[in-house]
Computed example of a mutant assay.
Amino acid sequence: MSQHFTILVGSVLGAAEYVADALSDTLKAKQHEVSIQLDPDLEAIDQDSTWIICTSTHGAGDLPDNIQPFAAQLEGQDLSAVNAYIIGLGDSSYDTFCHGAMTMEKLLTAANATILAEPFHIDVLNHPIPEDEAVAWLDRTVTV
């Protein structure tokens, strides 16, 4: 049965976009409908789709600029109809490793969204091609 996935991207240097593209290709190969949002806007996102939030961390543990407005939109929302996965990209040599993904997890949880699996944090120090890790995670986690 085909599902619709919306991949919401928070990216500064492009790594999260590469991950989003790889996830999209994998899901489309399994006959799913996929949309990628590089400048996510809550009003434009199908809440019946399954969300995959894929974000890096910027600066001192901040969300990338392109996803910050979306994060602000989530505050005070009721997202109890939303099912989501979270993928974080980070560098474990920083004490703010994957804080962007952790921020998104907190916002979604506070808005009553359902997180379908433990958030997946990719350490780019150990996995210089994070899209390979993300696709392997998708294959073993998202049973579609």
Score class of each variant (00 low, 15 high):
69 P>S: 13
68 Q>M: 13
89 L>W: 05
48 D>S: 15
45 I>L: 10
52 I>P: 07
89 L>V: 05
94 Y>E: 13
107 L>W: 01
54 C>G: 00
32 H>V: 12
51 W>N: 08
104 M>F: 07
44 A>R: 06
66 N>P: 03
77 Q>V: 10
95 D>E: 14
53 I>E: 07
91 D>P: 01
40 P>E: 12
89 L>M: 09
69 P>I: 14
60 A>E: 14
94 Y>F: 15
72 A>D: 14
34 V>A: 11
52 I>A: 10
90 G>Y: 05
50 T>W: 03
90 G>C: 03
95 D>F: 15
43 E>C: 11
79 L>Q: 06
40 P>G: 14
41 D>K: 14
39 D>F: 15
48 D>Q: 15
87 I>C: 10
103 T>E: 10
40 P>H: 07
86 I>C: 05
50 T>I: 15
86 I>Y: 03
97 F>M: 01
67 I>Y: 06
59 G>H: 05
74 L>G: 09
91 D>R: 00
97 F>T: 03
68 Q>Y: 09
95 D>C: 10
33 E>F: 12
64 P>T: 09
82 V>L: 04
83 N>T: 07
54 C>S: 12
37 Q>G: 07
68 Q>A: 14
59 G>W: 04
64 P>F: 11
68 Q>N: 05
97 F>C: 06
67 I>S: 09
44 A>I: 01
78 D>C: 10
48 D>K: 14
42 L>A: 14
93 S>A: 14
51 W>A: 10
45 I>K: 02
50 T>Y: 07
107 L>F: 08
56 S>Q: 04
35 S>V: 13
67 I>C: 12
103 T>G: 03
76 G>Y: 00
51 W>L: 13
90 G>V: 06
90 G>N: 02
76 G>V: 03
60 A>R: 04
51 W>V: 06
62 D>T: 05
72 A>K: 08
37 Q>N: 11
34 V>P: 04
89 L>C: 06
61 G>F: 08
90 G>F: 07
91 D>T: 04
49 S>N: 10
37 Q>Y: 14
76 G>F: 07
48 D>W: 00
70 F>N: 02
64 P>S: 11
102 M>Y: 03
104 M>T: 04
41 D>H: 12
41 D>V: 15
72 A>S: 12
102 M>W: 00
61 G>H: 05
84 A>L: 08
64 P>N: 08
